[in-house]
């Protein structure tokens, strides 16, 4: 192949990449732009932010959003408490069990949320041995725990990746050798070194909880997901505004994951 032929082939392959990129971008961006544009057309004949104003003025929006934020924080807290020690122990002592644990953490991706929530309702209904749905607080607890289950694949993987990036065994042994007990090792040595991984898992969890519908709806809790569905069914412009806001929120979470991921890379680059 001559030099000119090689250059032509390279140009063609680059052109193909650009075309694929443009088509992909249009596929994702056009509906978004369309939704955003539609959300600005609430006022007849001109663009305005009326739909956004209307959403913000709605007390149900504020209540449901704050409720979901609270649930997200509770989910993250419980998730970290369960996942970090588990992933740490698997990495340290139970390496042979890793495939089993990974399989278990993947189950929420395979089993539909509706199946899980019906299982919960059968197990924890008000006339069962553990009547978690009998009280509001216990239903909230059940919802938070169900969110922990839903977010498990993401949280576990994020933490596990973080733990694999550090030499868990040697750091644990070094701390133990210096007299540290398990609590000190976990909170002073391991947790600070997987903080960015935990934050990644936390932001993913936050994004999942904010938009989750099935669990909250079937457990009859006033979360943001059911509110989005309700508004979507009854209003014209507000659902578009909410969709754009949810999109921005999700991407903000992704951006933060990136920021923390990069900060970690820079720290280890030396």
């Amino acid at each position: 192949m001559t030099r000119r032929e090689k250059v032509n082939t390279m140009k063609q392959s680059r052109l193909g990449s650009w075309i694929a990129l443009v088509i992909g971008t249009l596929y994702f961006v056009v509906p978004l732009v369309g939704t955003f544009e539609f959300s600005l057309r609430m006022r007849r004949g001109e663009y305005s932010l009326d739909a956004y104003r209307s959403v913000f003025a709605d007390s149900n929006f504020q209540d449901s959003f704050l409720y979901s934020c609270g649930m997200a924080l509770a989910t993250i807290f419980i998730g970290v408490l369960i996942v970090v020690p588990t992933a740490y122990w698997v990495q340290l002592r139970l390496r042979k069990l890793r495939p089993v644990i990974e399989f278990i953490t993947l189950l929420p991706l395979v089993i539909p949320a509706i199946v899980i929530v019906f299982g919960y309702l059968r197990l924890y209904n008000s006339s069962s041995m553990i009547p978690l749905t009998a009280e509001v607080w216990s239903t909230d607890l059940l919802l938070a725990l169900s969110y922990v289950t839903l977010a498990l694949p993401y949280m576990y993987r994020a933490v596990d990746t973080g733990l694999r990036a550090i030499d868990v065994r040697t750091l644990t042994e070094a701390a133990e050798n210096l007299g540290a007990g398990w609590t000190t090792i976990l909170f002073k040595v391991i947790l600070p070194n997987v903080r960015s991984a935990i934050l990644s898992g936390a932001f993913l969890t936050f994004a999942i909880v904010i938009g989750e519908f099935t669990m909250a709806s079937l457990l009859n809790r006033p979360a943001f997901g059911p509110y989005l569905q309700l508004v979507g069914a009854n209003r014209a412009y507000e659902p578009s505004a909410l969709a754009v806001m949810a999109f921005v929120l999700t991407w903000a979470c992704m951006g933060l994951i990136n920021v923390f991921g990069r900060a970690k890379q820079t720290k280890h680059a030396g």
């Binding site: 050798n177 040595v189 070194n193």
Partner: peptide, 20 residues
């Protein structure tokens, strides 16, 4: 005795300094 009860100091091949 557990490692944290022995009063034995150890230096590892991979240094094992706490990165944080």
């Amino acid at each position: 005795l557990r490692p944290n009860q022995r009063n034995v100091g150890m230096v590892f091949q991979s240094y094992a300094l706490f990165p944080n």
